[in-house]
Simulated scan of single mutants.
Amino acid sequence: MSETLGELQERRARGPRSMLMLFDLDDTLVHRRAVFSSWAEEFASQYPEQSGLAAWLTAEDQDGLRPREELWSRVKTRLSLDLPVERLVSDWQEVFVARYAVDPDTLDALRRARSQRWRLGVVTNGDAAVQAAKIAAAGLAPLVDGICISGAEGVAKPHREIFDLAALRCGADLVGGWMIGDSPLADIQGAHNAGLNSVWIADEGIAWPPEHRPPTRSAATVSAAVDLILSLPTQEPVRRS
């Protein structure tokens, strides 16, 4: 059973405070786009008469932002499937989530941070059961001190409250802490809202969207982001520009 906010605050007050790193899940700790692309190619191979099906699925998925029922309603129509949408979604989620894995470089980075006494947490938006299953499949739970899933907590990134809860659950302070993620709004603006430093994870050649406040730093991978933070002689203040 999850601790109440009051219990978390009391536990933190009793112990020493530690430095905090928070991580997004999808397309940060785990490469969701690659997982979906791999699944789409395999699924499309079952329908060789459907030219371009894998690319169509990837576009329709909208990086996971399209509601699952809406996505599978479209798939059902295109492929003339007999099963109800609810069953299609359920069957897909079971197969898809099982593909989640953390690459070795990211695992090593998490271990390096923990060896230097950083507290680590996962903060992710999404359905509670689905995101928890992803975390379990990826084997992340033993490597972090706290997990916050918006669907379970009733609050989502970029709202400050979910970061407050994550810090309490990890037994650390937000002050001087870091948020590492790929979303300019949910992760980086969320970090600003919570008073955290931030590292934006972005593929090479991707420009920062000018309508959003910039991150403290940027990096191509979680491993690079962790090493950057660990290399700093002192904790940088949050950029206010």
Rank of each mutant, 00 (worst) to 15 (best):
R111Y: 05
H159N: 06
E69Y: 07
A113T: 11
D61F: 01
L71Q: 02
D127A: 05
V102L: 07
D127Y: 05
D63N: 10
A113C: 11
T58I: 12
Q131Y: 15
I135S: 03
E86S: 14
R99T: 05
W118D: 10
R66T: 11
Q131T: 07
G64A: 09
L88Y: 08
D103N: 15
R112F: 09
D91N: 06
D164L: 09
D108H: 05
W72I: 03
S150E: 04
I135Y: 13
I147P: 12
P67R: 10
E60F: 00
D61K: 00
W72H: 15
P142D: 11
R112V: 04
S90I: 09
L88A: 10
E161N: 10
A113F: 08
P84M: 02
D82F: 01
A167R: 12
V122G: 09
E86W: 08
D145E: 08
R99E: 02
G126E: 03
K134P: 00
T58V: 10
N125I: 08
E60C: 15
W72N: 09
Q93V: 02
R66M: 12
W92F: 15
L120F: 13
R112G: 06
P142E: 14
Q62L: 09
V155T: 14
G139D: 09
V144Q: 05
A132D: 06
V130H: 05
R160T: 11
S115C: 13
A141Q: 07
A136Q: 08
S115T: 12
L83P: 00
L140H: 13
V130I: 15
R111I: 07
V155S: 05
G146V: 07
F163T: 10
K76E: 12
I162W: 00
D164K: 01
W118R: 12
L140Q: 07
T77A: 14
T58H: 06
G64L: 05
D91K: 11
G154Q: 07
S150G: 06
V97Y: 01
L79Y: 14
A141N: 06
V144W: 12
P158H: 03
V155W: 08
G121I: 08
W92L: 06
R68S: 14
A156S: 13
D108I: 09
H159S: 06
K76Y: 00
P84E: 14
A129S: 13
A98N: 05
S73Q: 15
G139S: 04
G154C: 04
V155P: 04
K76A: 12
R117Y: 10
L168S: 09
T77S: 13
R119W: 03
G121V: 11
